[in-house]
Design a protein around this nucleic acid. Sequence first.
RNA 1: GGGUCUGUGGUCUAGUUGGUCAUGACGCGGCCUUUACAAGGCCGAAGUCGGCGGUUCGAACCCGCCCAGACCCA
Length: 875
Amino acid sequence: MTDVPDSYDPETVEPKWQEAWRGSEVYNPDGEPDYVVDTPPPYPTGQLHIGHALGWSYMDFAARFHRMLGENVLFPQGWDCHGLPTEVKVEEEQDIHRTDVPREEFRELCVELSERRIDGMKETMHAMGFSQDWSAEYRTMDPEYWEKTQRSFVEMAEGDEEESYVYRDEHPVNWCPRCETAIADAEVENVDREGRLHYVTFDGVDNDDIEIATTRPELLAACVGMAVDPDDERYADRVGDTFEVPLFGQEVELLADDDVDGDFGTGAVMICTFGDKQDVDWWAEHDLDLRPVFTEDGRLGELAGEYEGLTVEAAKTTIAEDLEEAGYLNDTEPTDQSVGACWRCDTPIEILSKEQWFVEVRQDEILEKAAEVEWIPDHMYDRLEDWTEGMEWDWVISRQRVFATPIPAWFCNDCGHVHVADVEALPVEPTESDPAIEACPECGADDWEGETDVMDTWMDSSISPMHVQGWPDADFEPTTLRQQGHDIIRTWAFYTLLRVTALEDEVPWEEALINGMVFGDDGHKMSKSRGNAVGPEEAVEEHSADAVRQALALGGQPGSDIQFQWKEVTSASRFLTKCWNIFQFASEHLDEETPEIGAPAYRDADQWILTKLADTAETVEADMREYRFDSALRELREFVWEDLADDYLELVKGRLYEGRPGERDAARHALYTAVSASVRMLAPFAPHFAEEVYDHLPGTEGSVHAASWPDAAFEGDEDAEAKGDLIAEVASTVRAWKSDEGMALNADLDRIEVYSDQGRGYDTYDLSEAVNAPVYLETGSPNVELVPVGVDPDHSVIGPQFRDEAGQVVGALESADLTQLKNEKEIEGEISLEVDGESVSIDGDAVEIEEEYRAESGEEVEVLETERATVLVFP
RNA sequence: GGGUCUGUGGUCUAGUUGGUCAUGACGCGGCCUUUACAAGGCCGAAGUCGGCGGUUCGAACCCGCCCAGACCCA
């Protein structure tokens, strides 16, 4: 091998292999897949952010690893296209309102924008080296996909009232006045802000007046009742009293309800339709009137009389002023409040009662399936459980928007009958075409109005595992892995469980790997204003994709939030350089014949590195199976850097350069085995680097990503590891000593003597070369003065043996005469002590006597202590 | 207010059948061109393992309370 470049240049290597992979089929499953990833379909924002990079890195590590295990991996990629942000962007770019152009035309503009944005995100995915199977790409905005969304809707709507999950009803829903659409609970976020509490008097009707406190005087027109805590003594005999609503005049009754917080304001509150979810509960509970006062665009409506047309904020001010003028407003004060807001645009939501489509939430069956999924880490199940148990309202799935999957239904203009499309008719756009049936089955008329409402985009993405598994053409089988962030457990994970359970009565995925958030280098959430935001492209450009991937893997174990740190990227990049240098060294000694070397006469050092390699491969594989990418990579790095580079290479250099052919071949073969296995284990993390090395490595064919995980099992001498540890340790200690002494590392020494438990039973060839000195193996103790300097009791023996006296025993050992202890231990095999007036005896093996060697005066010898040996160095 | 998680040298991080000398990286200081590698090697300084209490012969680890932070929810 002569064509190995001096240095590793990711800037040319990475794009080269990305190009090659694009044109190959190395990531396409060959036949029926048995490891299927339910890849998140991201929303096409145009930017793949660092959080995506983390999630996709996890999936890519897993996909590449499982391919190497010989599994047929399907790692598809979808795009969750529908939704409001795209509509808003199109309106902005085209300078139009969505109603200015026909629905179909507006939709087309949204599709075009989505396509442009998808292209940009795909580029970043390629640059990160992710290994999706692009032949399995899908987009929820394509008719082939929304046919499936519609089908899933139709199937869930089938059956009688008892069976069917889908129903249409008028019910209060969360409403975003800016987006002018209903939204689900999961799309409401609570934001803390300061409000103003208004103390308002309501005149009594044939009874005394009452004072209530409210933050929302603009809702007076919608007031339909008042409530107090039944145990509130201030209002003990007043329940049932009637009052007149100031400015608006409707009469309302005082109710008692446990949910009233008596400590808030005056202890009396008004009930409006609707200020919040609590109002909805009271309204339903006490069967109150409905006085809808808000319009769909967030203004006051007809019932507000002279205030009609004012925005919520303007009405709040105006009505407060008028209350004050009329003498009803007694006081105001600031108060902390938490208001629901649209998670897409942060506009405070209102609650409107509207005719909408709903999907029933059957908590028990969702939880039953959720419990069958293996959550990684497992406490993520708790989040799903909490959310599910706390669900109060069914899922409102209709949206009054355009760019989404149409709800496949029509209304009969004569009798109002609702017709849901038949499966055979799908996909269908009911605003464009009439139903397949002609006459209304209820009244016989033939005059249909297509549903203009569209579906919540979560209806699209919540069938992703079914789409990925080829539903409905193929029978559904659970996918293997779902990877997603913990921030969307309440949405994507929840809805997917709900839908797949309802449709197939199966778990959507066997394992749910939940990743944390990625914070900036300063430990805070990434944000442009804070200036700590880093994009994947930027990081890749600065170092390399392989380095960024490693940094993400090492950020922490999956599930925990991680901090993006440049220093980790730097250190990963150095590791690649180190690996390249190892490989470069190895390449000078390997050729096409190396892999074929038969029956190599391994020396101790060779057996040692091969044993270490086997242990490493086993540990790394176990970690990878458990998605512990952090510890897998750490383990691998330690092996490569410490065992392979620092120790083994130094030990066998002499043999490789000057050994006899048989001895050289043994080292070459072991070196080849270690390098080949290491590069394959590195492949999931650093796919470009691994491919480049593998490409140069003799005896390989094709891509490293089609290679198999190293089967490194090695049966060497029983104590190969112990011998090798000793050899490596002595070599490195002597070399460190030389460095300390300011000597050249290849300075020759007169001789060294090694005293250890291994006696003379190991091989000195490599050791001798590595320290550049003749090596004499010795047994027993060196002929230099030995001075006991302390004791090292084994607490795991002494603790259980003496229980509460253990402390005293250890104290006695430490204060005893060391020379005497040593004699007892060596002669008697046990040690006797006086503790608390009683004589106790300790097994000699439980007490280590620490000793130091003192060279006899006049002799020029250095005594080095290692963990396993004492080394005398004669310079 | 409720739930979940986290707290380990300056920074980030590892660490479960509880065993005394706590892992590694980056950074910092010093020394060294050695037939793969100065993007390297060697040595060093730097830690009340958030705090308090408990269990135990022994606690970073188990239990309780408290403090701080993150996320989700109300």
